[in-house]
Lab assay of single mutants.
Amino acid sequence: DETGKFLVLALYDYQEKSPREVTAKKGDILTLLNSTNKDWWKVEVNGRQGFVPAAYVKFL
Rank of each mutant, 00 (worst) to 15 (best):
D1S: 14
E2D: 13
E2Y: 14
E2L: 14
T3I: 12
T3E: 12
T3Q: 14
G4E: 12
G4P: 14
G4T: 12
G4M: 12
G4R: 13
G4F: 14
K5L: 13
K5F: 12
K5N: 10
K5S: 11
K5R: 13
F6M: 14
F6C: 15
L7T: 09
L7C: 14
L7M: 10
V8F: 07
V8C: 10
V8R: 00
L9P: 00
L9E: 11
L9T: 08
L9V: 15
L9I: 15
L9W: 06
L9A: 04
A10E: 02
A10D: 01
A10V: 15
L11H: 02
L11F: 05
L11E: 02
L11G: 02
L11S: 02
Y12A: 10
Y12H: 10
Y12V: 09
Y12R: 12
Y12L: 09
Y12S: 06
Y12P: 00
D13R: 03
Y14C: 10
Y14K: 01
Y14E: 01
Y14L: 03
Q15W: 13
Q15A: 12
E16P: 15
E16L: 06
K17E: 07
S18L: 08
S18V: 02
P19K: 10
P19Q: 10
P19W: 13
R20K: 12
R20D: 13
R20A: 12
E21F: 07
E21Y: 07
E21S: 06
E21A: 04
V22Y: 03
T23L: 04
T23F: 04
T23M: 04
T23H: 04
T23K: 02
T23R: 03
A24M: 15
A24R: 02
A24T: 15
A24Y: 11
A24P: 02
A24G: 03
K25D: 03
K25T: 07
K25N: 09
K25Q: 09
K26L: 08
K26G: 04
K26C: 10
K26W: 07
K26Y: 05
G27L: 03
D28H: 04
I29V: 11
I29T: 04
I29A: 02
I29Q: 03
I29F: 05
L30N: 00
L30K: 00
L30M: 15
T31E: 08
T31Q: 10
T31M: 11
T31C: 13
L32G: 01
L32W: 03
L32S: 01
L32R: 00
L32D: 00
L33S: 01
L33H: 02
L33N: 00
N34W: 09
N34V: 08
T36E: 13
T36L: 09
T36N: 11
T36H: 11
N37I: 05
N37A: 07
K38H: 10
K38Q: 10
D39W: 15
D39H: 14
W40A: 00
W40L: 01
W40Q: 00
W40P: 00
W40Y: 05
W41G: 00
W41P: 00
K42W: 15
K42D: 04
K42Q: 12
K42P: 01
K42I: 12
V43M: 00
V43E: 01
V43R: 00
V43N: 00
E44A: 07
E44L: 06
E44F: 05
E44T: 04
V45C: 08
V45L: 14
N46M: 07
G47R: 02
R48I: 08
R48T: 06
R48Q: 08
Q49P: 04
Q49Y: 07
F51Y: 15
F51S: 01
F51M: 07
F51D: 02
F51T: 02
V52A: 02
V52C: 07
V52G: 02
P53N: 04
P53M: 06
P53W: 11
P53L: 09
A54F: 04
A54D: 02
A54K: 06
A54Y: 04
A55Q: 11
A55N: 11
A55T: 12
A55G: 11
A55K: 14
Y56N: 08
V57Y: 02
V57K: 00
V57H: 00
V57W: 03
V57T: 00
K58S: 13
K58T: 15
K58G: 13
F59H: 10
F59D: 07
L60C: 12
L60D: 02
L60R: 01
